[in-house]
Amino acid sequence: MKLDAHQRGEVTAAARDASERRIFALLRQHYGPTQVWPGDPQALEVVRAATVKAADYAMNAERDVFKIAALMLSFSDDFDTREPWAREIVAAREGDAPIAELWYQAGIAEVRRYEDARR
């Protein structure tokens, strides 16, 4: 089956929408009940911004976008340049190796450090 340019555009737009919805739905399932949830419309914007940020770092897997979106919600939309632990990971990165998981684990460690300090 051959698709013309318009049909291809519709297919890619549908794929993009489905992908964003998948990430958004899982994000809301886990972060929706927390205090970091900014509301659905803004969270969807965060997912889109996370997709762009992931692409800037040559990552495009949905799980990577999810984790970047979660860190943007939990820390800030520019956590990658603002947070020292995130900058260290960027500095130590080799080539285009995916770093979302490293960021995510470092973010969890940062939160846990605070939690432990408050016990």
Partner: peptide, 14 residues
Amino acid sequence: LGDKPAGGDCATCP
């Protein structure tokens, strides 16, 4: 979610 590419030809992506 796994390794599925996110966004496809995302309009907001470069």
